[in-house]
Design a protein around this nucleic acid. Structure first.
Lengths: 331, 331
DNA sequence: TTGTATGCGTTATCAA
DNA sequence: TTGATAACGCATACAA
């Protein structure tokens, strides 16, 4: 019971394989009667075209290579979900690789994608600079950065409007009367961290407020990082911050733990704003104010950019996804 | 600057393509000198073998087709992460499809996997019975159920020890002195829900306690479901439950919200035990007691089962993953 | 409108 | 130990 090929269909329909191919792919110049006969034969045999063979012949493989920093992070998982939905609309497949935020694995993954002859690579690069740029370029495969950028004007990317993320969170805290607003930021080697700090500083400056190194931390990624930095910030002998803007909701959750451990209350003693708006943030005893990023739409957009590029569009696509402040009780 | 093929390597090394293939694939009967020359030529050209072409020739494609109910659910995301890690060890790729818990999309995904000629399908089926069984069987592609089973003795699967999940949670609550223990269970058409109810009932029976329809709800999947059912259970005029065992931590979070809304405290008024042990459960104001399921290992095991089957093992593999009660403050 | 023949880049068979 | 050559299943240029 070996799988039927195009030849089996041709034999049954008593036409050539060429005709079968043309009929099944909806090409013109096929007599309606013939087409019907082919379709019927294909149905009878339960024929499913072999995508592998098709790929070897055509230039487009119909596969997007997705390299994600950590699929167990709900943020990236939702991005991948968006990609999957968009890919399905295009009748394309997704090959997934998880780099675990490790450059070495990211490079391996790029190598695999090249070997897979994917049409395009969609990647959340682990490094801002000195990372996988060269490796990506040298593959010759078009690629789209997702959620993160390289900070240049050439590379296709789709990312949150990170400057606006920083502005929204900071302005909101200023509106609430806070003046000493701490920033627990992400890694320096992360474009989102850059953008958000810019927005944070800009918002402060516009309102005549200031920051200082005492009020800033970076390299925070995990819940534990958030907890540790928050403890540092809140036990400072100098003027303590009255509000914290965290790089992600995960980091914010760590800060919440720290605040609780110190016996302080939210938002009265310390207000807090996170980022990403993960569903769990709303379940906290003090529901978390957060900046929502349209992750699913961002995934879709990444595929759309890749598809446009594959359709011959030569202009660089750099898309900023709009973000939205969701005010809850923590601020 | 077209991509170099095996022929380019052969030309440069001044050998035949056959020799290149044998040298690169580590086959025997290749002179060390020749092999070195081939390797050097491949390196110089930055040659990367075309997996598509290889697939057309060989019986194994080196691709696992993963069909997951919802990648944005951290539970499944971690399973996929485990699969990815195991696949990488085997130098295999993963094609990912998200069924969104919809049978129709699951069937489409199966069709695609067949067209992709994946070596094996790893699937978290949306239905226990009357689902995609027939479609899966008729593909002729070996498959492994992950996290869920069909309840038969033939189909390969790896799933949590759900009976034990129910037992652990329920025994623990009995130990804490509870007698009226409610169950907010998952969908009837879900094997985990079946197993967990069995364990729940068995544990109660062994200790001379009982349940009743008033104490049980099913079909809960989301946080909102958990909240709704918990409100129902806790506003019952008859004897109110003093403890709740929830199908997942997500459902448990909803129950926590409901309990809070009713002005009750955890665990004094109502104790609660969830399942899955998602990281966020530990961040709640009252950290959540939960039954931990080794999701990452389960993903790895799924790939291992598939790989064994592909290596010719003919015996059905039905693996129960061990589970573990993590006691925190909510019980 | 349809059929024949070629090639995509590999692996594998067989002969040298 | 190596080389020539035939598949794998499909799409397509070209011939009919």
């Amino acid at each position: 019971m070996t799988k039927p090929t195009i030849r089996d269909v041709a034999d049954l329909a008593e036409v050539s394989i060429n005709t079968v191919s043309r009929a099944l792919n909806g090409k013109p110049d096929v007599h309606p009667t013939t087409r019907a006969a082919v379709l019927e034969a294909a149905r009878q045999l339960n024929y499913v075209p072999n995508r592998l063979a098709r790929r070897l012949r055509t230039d487009r493989t119909g596969v997007f290579g997705v390299i994600v920093a950590d699929i167990s992070n709900p943020f990236f998982a939702m991005v991948v979900k968006g990609m999957g939905d968009a890919a399905r609309d295009l009748e394309c497949s997704l090959i997934l690789q998880d780099s675990g935020e490790a450059l070495e694995r990211e490079l391996e993954a790029i190598h695999v994608m090249r070997s897979e002859h994917v049409d395009s690579i969609l990647i959340t690069p682990t490094r801002f600079r000195d990372g996988s740029v060269d490796a990506l370029r040298s593959t010759g495969v078009p690629f789209v950065l997702v959620g993160r950028t390289f900070g240049d004007a050439e590379t296709d990317h789709v990312a949150p409007d990170d400057e606006q993320v920083g502005r929204l969170a900071t302005s909101h805290l200023l509106d609430r009367g806070h003046r000493r607003i701490a920033l627990i930021n992400g890694p320096e080697n992360n474009s989102s961290a850059h953008g958000r700090r810019s927005g944070y500083l800009a918002a402060l400056a516009e309102r005549g407020a200031t920051s200082s190194p005492d009020l800033q931390r970076s390299e925070a990624l995990t819940l534990e990082d958030g907890r540790r930095f928050a403890l540092e910030l809140l036990t400072q002998t100098a003027e303590r911050p009255t509000a914290v803007f965290a790089f992600s909701d995960l980091v914010a959750l760590g800060a919440v733990q720290a605040i609780r451990e110190m016996g302080m209350t939210i938002p009265d003693d310390v207000a807090i704003v996170g980022c990403d708006d993960i569903p769990f943030g709303a379940c906290l005893e003090v529901p978390l104010t957060s900046v929502r990023i349209p992750t699913h739409a961002m995934g879709r957009e990444a595929v759309a950019i890749a598809d446009r590029r594959l359709s011959g569009d030569r202009t660089a696509a750099q898309v900023k996804m709009p973000v939205e402040l969701i005010v809850r009780d923590s601020s």
